[in-house]
């Protein structure tokens, strides 16, 4: 992140949704987070959701600062705890649309336990994970996303750990919507965020994002454009493949696309059903859960 920047002179098309009095933002030149943020703003506008009903919850890190620039109800919480905070917020106000936007380290290292359980419960949250393959804000340490062999300040000889496949993890835990794009797939990413917002249940959108300052610097890809092109050129779209097969192989290709779009009762659906006594005893549980039709989606 950087702090030596001037106030922008020209208006931004999303000024209405921005805390312009907080500009300039802290993100580095060439950082992909701003692009992702822009896509979120477009998706919020396009979704038609009443703005008073949209909230954003972030954790800690470069991406965690998104909440601070959004001129809607926005919550910048503790490291890793965006999802449980959002859980309370959503359950207290079920009509609200709660977007969790945070980084890979925040959501899937320190917050990993919350992530898997929120997906299992199918909490109606939209989780956007900006994956920059390292801890950017603290200067570039290895994360659960750091590719095997990549250099960071805490793996100067190369990262000796295997990374998570976040999309496979989300799907295995029960997420009803799972997609991955790079921050250069602006149109597709915006569409995915919109679909995720409208989806009832735990939706997950991963965005591969260049971090030239921290990740790029240690991996000989210091120029923002170079890094952006690298991600984009190696990305291949494979919609609806099993997310287990949606691997990020930096030597060959980075599989992106929309992988999962299914229906499953949400936490609140089931909570209400059971507490109204509308189901018989376990294990028969008659009458059966009314399962909505699988949505035709494109």
């Amino acid at each position: 992140m950087s702090t030596k920047k001037k106030k922008p002179d020209a208006p931004h098309p999303h000024d209405e949704l921005l805390r312009t009095d907080r500009m300039p933002h802290i993100w580095c030149t060439g950082c992909g987070i701003g692009t992702v943020f822009s896509c979120v703003l477009s998706a919020v506008e396009k979704s038609g959701t009443p703005l008073d009903d949209v909230a954003m919850v972030s954790g800690i890190g470069c991406t965690g600062r998104m909440a601070g620039y959004l001129k809607l109800d926005s919550f910048h919480t503790t490291h890793g705890r965006a999802i449980p905070f959002a859980t309370g917020l959503k359950l207290a106000r079920p009509q609200g649309c709660v977007i969790v936007a945070s980084g890979d380290g925040d959501l899937l290292a320190i917050g990993g336990n919350h992530f898997i359980h929120a997906a299992r419960r199918n909490l109606d949250l939209t989780v956007i994970c900006v994956n920059n393959f390292n801890y950017g804000m603290t200067g570039g340490q290895l994360a659960p996303s750091t590719p095997f062999g990549a250099r960071t300040t805490t793996s100067t000889q190369g990262c000796s750990e295997e990374p998570f496949n976040f999309c496979a993890l989300a799907a295995a835990c029960g997420a009803v919507y799972v997609a991955r794009w790079t921050s250069l797939h602006i149109r597709r990413l915006t569409t995915s965020i919109g679909e995720a917002m409208n989806k009832r249940g735990f939706s997950f959108v991963e965005v591969l994002t260049p971090c030239p300052t921290s990740f790029g610097r240690h991996n000989k890809m210091r120029k923002p454009l170079e890094l952006l092109k690298f991600y984009h050129e190696r990305s291949v779209i494979r919609n609806y493949i099993d997310p287990k097969d949606a691997v990020l192989d930096f030597k060959k290709n980075l599989v992106v696309g929309k992988f999962v779009d299914i229906e499953r009762p949400t936490f609140l659906d089931n909570y209400r059903l059971l507490n109204r006594g509308e189901l018989g005893d376990w294990p028969d549980l008659e009458p059966k859960l009314p399962r909505p039709e699988k949505q035709a989606s494109g």
Partner: peptide, 17 residues
């Protein structure tokens, strides 16, 4: 919740709700 970290975070969220 899955642990007490989450429990505490969730009640803060609910309160803001």
């Amino acid at each position: 919740m899955e642990d007490e970290l989450a429990s505490m975070a969730a009640i803060l969220g609910a309160s803001w709700g």
